[in-house]
Amino acid sequence: MNPRLTDIDPAEALRYLGCTDAPPEALRRDLDRCRARLLDCARPRLVWRSFPRLPDGRLEGTDWTPAGADIAAHLRGCPHVVVLAATLGAETETLIRRAQRRDMAQALLLDACAAAAMEHVCDNFCADLAAASAPARLTARYSPGYGDFPLSEQRHIFALLDVTRRIGVSLTEGGLMLPQKSVTALIGLGAPEGARTATSCDTCPARAHCMFRKEGRSCGTP
């Protein structure tokens, strides 16, 4: 399963900018330019492995049991867990950092496009994984930092997948990833009926401080 980045959804990029209506024409033009630049620059990379999940939640062949009640509930009943790490690469990080020197508005648009692109890569991975695993069902992606699944669990994922060596992502002491446009996640494979197979406001990590929810709106996630 190779990383696939074929397009950046303009509506999704605009959502990151807080814009859910039709954007003004000038903004739309700027955004299209940034989408093209980002698609040209980004070099998505990913690494993943599938582990059998033991009844006590531990991943077989490792000494890791993902910490917290929320991830345990999320993966409950799944015989396998796919551990994923993905990134848009240092090229994108450099592009956005440098754009901040030249034109901050453009940097902001590039940053929003990058966030949308990262989602797109992860969605494509999950679609490919679902196709390869059918008829087994997949849970939604669940990342360190969601619910009570702490950011400190990142280091286990990094060690298991050899993330730094394989795709060039580093972890800061506080568990943040560099390049910033990177994602780690667990996906339950063989999810039983009733498991969470899609993201919703109820499971969203941004629930408490979501700018849309504060205004009584939604980002568009069902």
């Binding site: 900018l17 807080g18 814009c19 003004p24 000038a26 903004l27 700027d30 901050m104 508005a105 453009q106």
Partner: peptide
């Protein structure tokens, strides 16, 4: 008017 336009 949105944030990118405010910055511009």
């Amino acid at each position: 008017l949105y944030l990118p336009q405010l910055i511009k």
